[in-house]
Simulated assay, not measured.
Amino acid sequence: MHTLERIQDANDPAAPTDNELAARAAQGDALAFQLIMRRHNRLLFRTGRSILKNDDDAQDALQDAYLRAWRALGSFRAEARLSTWLVRIVANEALGRLRRRGGAQVIPFDTAVEPVDTPEGMWMQADPDEQPERSAMRGETRKLIEAGIDALPEVFRTVFVLRAVEDLSIEEVAAALGIPEATVRSRFFRARGLLREALSREIDVAIGDAFSFAGARCDEIVARVMAVITGPPPGPPA
């Protein structure tokens, strides 16, 4: 494996740990922060997108969240996982954008929610012309899954993305979103049931490809953040 790829892979025993990278970045090491971004880009992009439901908005939120994280790294304590700390920053940034945007109710993650009364699968039928045929190839199935996740009720959606798409544990999701583990379990199974009803058995085959964030898109967000944190300091206020 290429050296850079090994460094980015947190599971490689030769790679620095997240805590080691965080400590270096807190001392101003921009390269260490770049490695943190590349290691967690997909998880954090998916977190933001699960709230904002738009790729461009999620990328903008991710960039601002990374800048917040860069400035706040000195306050990070290794009591929690770095990924959990970063997820909370991204989620708060995305929720803040929803509040500022207005026009839609923003429901905090720790709010108790009664089961929706809409019959299973009906929430997917707002625009049936956008749904590909069941015989579509995997690429089209992935698009259908992404549309289905976007259509989930808000409080279910981020839980599902973190638990099913990103494969975080129940404990990790609960810690990241600040909700009880029992709430994570109930919302996850409710969301999974809704998707299974609407999307059929193909969900398990294509779910791992949903909301990919790699290659040029990954490079772009890293370059944008690095340009800010390594650029000249701002001048004195006018």
Rank of each mutant, 00 (worst) to 15 (best):
G103A: 07
G103N: 10
A104S: 12
A104V: 13
A104L: 10
Q105A: 14
Q105C: 05
Q105W: 01
Q105F: 05
V106T: 12
V106D: 06
V106W: 03
I107M: 11
I107H: 11
F109L: 11
F109V: 03
F109C: 03
D110C: 08
D110E: 13
A112R: 14
A112Y: 09
A112Q: 11
A112P: 05
V113G: 02
V113S: 11
V113I: 15
E114V: 09
E114C: 03
P115E: 07
P115M: 08
P115N: 08
P115W: 06
P115I: 05
V116H: 08
V116D: 13
V116L: 11
V116W: 03
V116I: 07
D117S: 14
D117L: 14
D117V: 13
D117C: 02
D117A: 15
P119I: 09
P119A: 10
E120C: 06
E120W: 11
G121Q: 00
G121A: 01
M122W: 10
M122Y: 09
M122V: 10
M124S: 09
M124T: 10
M124K: 04
M124L: 13
Q125S: 12
Q125Y: 02
Q125D: 08
A126H: 13
A126D: 15
A126W: 08
D127N: 14
D127A: 14
D127S: 14
P128V: 12
P128T: 11
D129T: 14
E130Y: 09
E130R: 12
P132A: 13
P132E: 08
E133N: 10
R134K: 07
R134S: 09
S135N: 11
S135W: 04
S135V: 08
A136R: 05
A136H: 00
A136C: 13
M137I: 06
M137G: 15
R138E: 12
E140V: 04
E140P: 00
T141W: 07
T141L: 12
T141A: 15
T141R: 15
R142H: 02
R142M: 06
K143W: 01
K143C: 01
L144M: 12
L144I: 02
L144E: 06
I145K: 00
I145D: 00
I145N: 01
I145M: 14
E146K: 03
A147T: 08
A147V: 01
A147K: 13
G148K: 00
I149F: 01
I149H: 01
I149D: 01
A151R: 13
L152S: 02
L152Q: 03
L152R: 00
P153F: 03
E154P: 02
E154K: 03
E154V: 06
E154F: 07
V155Q: 06
V155D: 03
F156N: 04
R157N: 09
R157F: 06
T158P: 03
T158Y: 00
V159A: 04
F160M: 05
F160A: 01
F160T: 00
F160L: 15
V161D: 00
V161E: 00
V161F: 00
L162A: 01
L162D: 02
L162N: 01
R163G: 03
R163E: 01
R163P: 01
A164K: 06
A164Y: 05
A164S: 13
A164G: 04
A164C: 08
V165I: 14
V165Y: 03
E166Q: 14
E166H: 06
E166P: 04
D167S: 12
D167G: 06
L168Q: 11
L168C: 11
S169G: 15
S169H: 07
S169R: 10
